[in-house]
């Protein structure tokens, strides 16, 4: 086994076990921490695939910003293992059956699919220069449209935040 295979298996085991940790742990804080570990191992996979830019952006955006906000909210709400509502037996059984059926459907769909052999990508395909060139030439329209989408989401968030401020909080002393 070369270093590539060893790293691949290490990262795979890390990703799957921490992803299981996210759904299995009772404490929301440890769920979030497991999710961060999952993001890290996925970033490791990106690096193995020569997509360094994607790997680092994944760490900056997901592990560095979004997960901090998740942690933030959970800490402020003070959620703990003992606060989490326990599901009834019937609900758990229903969940298992629904999940099992979904798994069956996916399995059946994948069975008939033809799997193409993997192509070895060139070593600089994920570099930021190539990525930027592709985004701004071949995919410029989807790229710009998605940026408008982000802008509208931002404005929406600001509008919701503003409304609360002016209408519901009474001014003191007036």
């Amino acid at each position: 086994m070369g270093i590539y295979e060893i790293l691949f298996w290490l990262l795979t085991i890390m990703a799957i076990s921490s992803a299981l940790g996210v759904i299995l742990s009772r404490n929301p804080i440890s769920s979030v921490l497991f999710l961060i570990v999952t993001f890290f191992s996925i970033s490791g996979h990106y690096i193995l695939l020569n997509a360094q830019f994607l790997a680092v952006v994944n760490v900056i955006v997901y592990a560095g910003a979004i997960m901090v906000l998740f942690l933030f909210v959970i800490m402020l709400m003070n959620l703990n293992a003992d606060v989490e509502p326990q599901k009834g037996r019937l609900l758990q059984l229903a969940g298992v059956i629904a999940g099992g059926i979904l798994f069956l459907v996916v399995l059946a769909a994948l069975k008939s699919a033809t799997v193409l052999p993997l192509e070895k990508a060139s070593s600089d395909i994920g570099l930021i220069k190539n990525l930027g060139r592709t985004l701004f030439t071949q995919f410029v329209l989807p790229f710009e449209v998605s940026s408008v989408l982000f802008l509208s989401a931002m404005i929406g968030a600001i509008v919701i935040g503003k409304k609360e401020d002016t209408n519901t909080i009474p001014l003191k002393g007036k």
């Binding site: 360094q52 830019f53 680092v56 760490v59 592990a63 560095g64 901090v68 570099l127 930021i128």
Partner: peptide, 25 residues
Amino acid sequence: DINIGILFVFGVVSLGVYGVMLGGW
């Protein structure tokens, strides 16, 4: 010498806040 040096710095800096957050909580 990774070709995304600055972004690496940013990634590590953005993780730096976890030490403070986890310790504080």
